[in-house]
Amino acid sequence: MRSDLKFRKGSEKSKIRIWALLGVTLAITALLLSSFPKERGVVINTIWNYFTEMILILPAVMILLGLLEVWVPRDIIVKYLGESSGVKGVFLAIVLGALPSGPLYIAFPIAASLLKKGARVSNIIVLLSAWACIKIPQEMVELQFLGLHFMVARLLLTIVFVIIMGLLIEQIIKWSNNKGGVGNAVY
């Protein structure tokens, strides 16, 4: 995928930019804290608390992401989602999307090849949405910081509405294709 490669090259530049941004943020913070000594305690305390909490889970989350990326081949997504439909297809789209396998832009070419192979639009939308926001390690971090009720409620609501959105978009695309009289106007 040439466009994918281009995107990654662009992210090389943004990597340097983000470190520069960290430098600027730290400089501004140092300036603020030296001019407002009264707030110094609260700010440093908060930073320290969040830092320790993050540093205790981040390596484990990264290891899980790394393991899943290496052990779950991308081909299985194409293999299983290409041939299944109905409830089974939706279920698979959520499960396969939830397996961590890199950033969302990696899912675009997979989705495109599935569409070409004749997978249902609704399943592809569900796959993309699950890929974007239902990741197992991320859910664990959400549990850690926002609690069980928040995490479970948001997860269930997201699944329900993502399925509704998939069916809706499928209908809209079908309807506009019929109206335009074009065979395969998805592209």
């Binding site: 960290l22 730290l26 969040y50 790394g66």
Partner: peptide, 25 residues
Amino acid sequence: SLKVAGKMFIEMLPTVLIIIVIIGL
């Protein structure tokens, strides 16, 4: 997979630190 994890960690680190500092501020 450890290499992938390490790369992701380094990539994410500056953003994590920026957000934590912003939370503090």
